[in-house]
Amino acid sequence: MNQDTTLDAVAGLLAEAQRILIITGAGISADSGLPTYRGIGGLYHERLTGEGLTIEQALSGEMMARRPDICWRYIAELESNCRGAGPNAAHRLIAALEQEKSALWVLTQNVDGLHRAAGSQKLIEIHGTVHHLCCTECPHERDVADFTGLDIPPACPVCGGLLRPDVVLFGEMLPEQGIQRLERVLAAGVDLVLSIGTTSVFPYIAGPVWWARQEGIPSVEINPGDSEVSGLVTHRLRLGAAEAMGKLWARLHPDAPAGH
């Protein structure tokens, strides 16, 4: 099946589906100028930190507890690479598609907040967001646009304890609320699962695609490279997220002006 035929087929599935689960990873934010995480050319591809650590060691819950200065150094590096970025066409078109469907949910691994900035409301930020800080010692929490002006590591203005972003670090448990929400979405039933810009190495990210395959529900992967679910989906588009979503939107809305 050539690319245009596949695009037509996927557009047809999107047109018919009312309950959709879209799973996104770092690849969807690449068109906003953000580096991918571990992929080829990614921010930490085959690279150790200045301390000789893997990035998984540096960005772990254990390191936050033992050496918050090291953990925060690389959290701040990630945030600085995201700073100033805005949603791209893929984020915006997903948010627009949500307005047309009875239930379109986004399960994202990204902590950059771009889906929320684009207007997505049915959103499961399974790894949290760098834009929300919580004290590890008291109930204080606050939202920040970026880390400009923060001491690294930052101290709580209320009790002096350590502040940390509300993100899931390596070795930490996923938020129970997010997992339960995903389970409820799947239990209610979906008509289509889309995986966009993720290598799907985590079981909870690949899981919905496996579930769709077992249930006979169509699934789509939008990814220029291969992933853990490439052999499971019913349709593959080897395209970047913004290009693919733009082409699909044009098929769904042939009379709409280009560049929504």
Rank of each mutant, 00 (worst) to 15 (best):
L48G: 00
V106L: 08
P165R: 09
F202V: 10
C134W: 04
G113K: 06
R38K: 12
K122N: 15
A30K: 15
C135L: 04
D255Q: 15
H127S: 00
A9W: 07
H45T: 00
Q57T: 07
A95E: 03
G225V: 05
V185G: 06
P68M: 15
I75M: 14
E176M: 12
S32H: 14
Y74E: 03
E100H: 06
I222N: 10
T234P: 13
E141K: 15
M1S: 13
G216W: 08
S227A: 12
F170T: 02
L162I: 03
A85C: 07
R47Q: 07
T198D: 02
V233G: 11
G178V: 04
K101W: 08
D4P: 03
H253L: 09
R181D: 01
D146N: 14
I124F: 05
P157W: 04
R19P: 00
P257G: 06
G113D: 05
T108I: 08
L107C: 08
K122V: 00
S102Y: 00
P254Q: 01
R236L: 09
E16T: 15
A117T: 05
R236H: 04
G27Q: 10
E215D: 05
S29H: 11
V220W: 08
P224I: 03
R184Y: 01
V130Y: 13
I75V: 15
E141V: 07
L53H: 11
D146A: 07
R164I: 00
G160T: 09
D255F: 11
A26M: 10
V167S: 11
T198Q: 05
F202L: 12
L162A: 07
Q109Y: 08
E176Y: 07
N88M: 12
S230L: 11
E16D: 13
R213M: 06
I124W: 08
A85F: 10
G50I: 02
G42P: 15
S32Y: 14
E183S: 12
I179W: 03
M173V: 05
G52F: 12
P154A: 11
R238T: 00
R213V: 01
L107S: 01
L169W: 01
R67S: 03
G39Y: 07
D8E: 15
L232D: 03
V144H: 04
D31I: 15
E46Q: 15
S219E: 01
F147A: 09
G161P: 07
R116M: 01
R213T: 01
C71F: 06
R73L: 12
A30L: 12
F170K: 09
L150K: 09
P218H: 12
